[in-house]
Structures are given as structure tokens and as C-alpha cells.
Design a protein around this nucleic acid. Structure first.
Lengths: 137, 137
DNA sequence: CCCTACGTTGGACAAGGTCTAAGTCAAGGC
DNA sequence: GCCTTGACTTAGACCTTGTCCAACGTAGGG
């Protein structure tokens, strides 16, 4: 959080109340909010913050590599603040809850050259699906 | 295709011209159309077919397990007719082209019990990202 | 303390998808 | 073959998610 803001300042970010609030709302583990949820929580602390600013800020954080976009299904994109540590996701099919997980092995190297079709492969996303203990009960 | 229609009849599907056309449009390998693309191609063969019917039919095929939804980013969901053979996807970040790929190993078993958080895990989706040879040139 | 370029705002707009009420038609029964 | 009926289709309104813009506000260098 403070770390994040510091890094952003060093990269020429102007530090506004809105950006601070968005960064605060996103801090923590296993946080995967939609843009609207970020906006709702930000509004609690800074009532006048606009949707456009939330989208702008999220977009900037994504291109700076501080935030990860997670698109699970065709609904709203979620944002994952845990972008600096590589990880994958475990998604509950019923309630949509997401957990960060760390499978064994390296998924990237599991794709043989013959299956790359000439692509330059740079990244891989793994999403496990299932039912969380809460929904199973 | 004919196989597909036969399976659907056996499951009580009423066989209409619209459903036939949607099934036809989707047949083939490495096909990953958006709902709108399906609608456009279906319209060539059956001009009056409506968007709602295309969405309905796609949704039904997905719940019958004949079609796979692929949501790559926040843009339109794509539909993959290759649902009966397990496979994963390789996506071009620039133009959005998707290829079906078959990595080595079993991604499902790569998630240790300690990383399952009590979830009943049933499925895993792997999406490789990169640049396709066309866009690289 | 001022200036100015960067940031924020609200509202209009666009794309993707869902819903509904009214009309149509596949297919089983005669 | 023809009727009947409930499943299917239709057009269009509507919703959600996300983008764009022109006018306004302000962080931070000088």
C-alpha cells in the first residue's frame, strides 16, 4: 500500500485522493473485486469519486503491472492486487468466490514446441473450477 | 454435425431450422466464434434468425455439454464446438485468434490438496497467451 | 503562491447480453 | 394427412459493463 504508492510516485504518478483510495481498497490477499465493487468501497471513503476515475485508475495500475485482470466468465472483470507474485486461480462455480493458488510444476513449459503453432508464448493462466465448502453445505 | 443433431434429438430437442443452422455454423476444428459472428453466419443461410435465438441455442448447447464457453478477456465470449475432446487454448494478444492446444501433463493433479481450500475441484482451464506468427510479422 | 499539465467529473454513448409478450411451428396422436 | 399443443422464435426494450469527451479542479514544480 504505502509501498505501492511509493513505487507509483517514483514512476511519475500524481498522487491524488482518488488514487490513494483505490489503492487502499485493493490491498490485501485473496482480494478479487469488480470495478463496480471497487467503486462502491471507494465511495464509502470518498463520496464524490466517479466511475470513470475508478476505471482509469484500474487501467493504469494494470498497465503498470501492479494489478492483474481476471476474467472468469462473461461477467464483470475482476482485479487482483497480488500481481507481483505469480499465481493461479481457484473459482467457485456457484458463488464466484476466487482464491489464489499455487499448483506444482510450470504450466508454461508444459506446452511443447509442436503445439505452439509459431506463436511467441509469454504467459499462461490456469483457472481451476469447482464448488467451495460454503456452497457445498 | 449430423451426429450432434442426432444426440440432441435423443435428448428431447425439437429440431428447428434455426437450431440446425447454428449447429452447422459451429462445426469444424479451431472454430471459436463470438455470438455475433455465429449470428452473422447463420443469417447468411436463414435471414430471419434473431439474435435471441442464437443466444438461446448457444446457451442450451453449453448446458448440454456440446459447446464450451471461452472467455478470454473482457470482450465477447467465444464458443468452442470441440467440447468432447479435452484441450486448452493458445490466444494471440494482438488479434485475438485462438488455437486449440494439448499441453503435456495433467493440470488438475498439479493442484495439491493443501492448495484446494476445501473446494471440490472438477475442472481446469489453461490459457496460453502470446503473439501469433501473423501479428509478429 | 501561481501556473499548468495532469487528473477528475458526470453524462452520453457503445457493445454484449437478457428478458418478455405475442406469434409460429415440430412432432405426436388421431 | 390434419389437429393440437407446448416448445420455439421473434423484435425490441432493457440491463450491465465499460469507454469517451469536454469542462472543471488540483498536485506539485518553480
Amino acid at each position: 500500500m504505502s509501498d505501492l504508492l511509493k513505487r507509483l510516485r517514483e514512476r511519475g504518478w500524481r498522487l491524488t485522493a482518488q488514487r490513494r483510495v483505490v489503492a487502499e481498497v485493493l490491498s490485501g490477499d485473496h482480494i478479487h473485486l469488480t470495478a463496480d465493487e471497487v467503486h462502491a468501497r471507494a465511495t464509502e471513503r470518498l463520496p464524490e469519486i466517479s466511475r470513470a476515475t475508478v476505471y482509469n485508475t484500474l487501467g493504469e495500475l494494470v498497465s503498470l503491472g501492479e494489478l492483474l485482470e481476471v476474467s472468469t466468465d462473461h461477467r464483470a472483470t475482476r482485479y487482483d492486487p497480488n500481481a507481483r507474485r505469480p499465481h493461479h486461480h481457484l473459482l467457485c462455480d456457484r458463488c464466484g468466490t476466487i482464491r489464489d493458488v499455487h499448483p506444482t510444476g510450470d504450466a508454461l513449459s508444459a506446452l511443447p514446441e509442436s503445439e505452439r503453432f509459431g506463436y511467441t508464448v509469454s504467459d499462461v493462466a490456469l483457472t481451476y473450477r469447482g464448488i467451495c465448502p460454503n456452497c457445498a453445505a
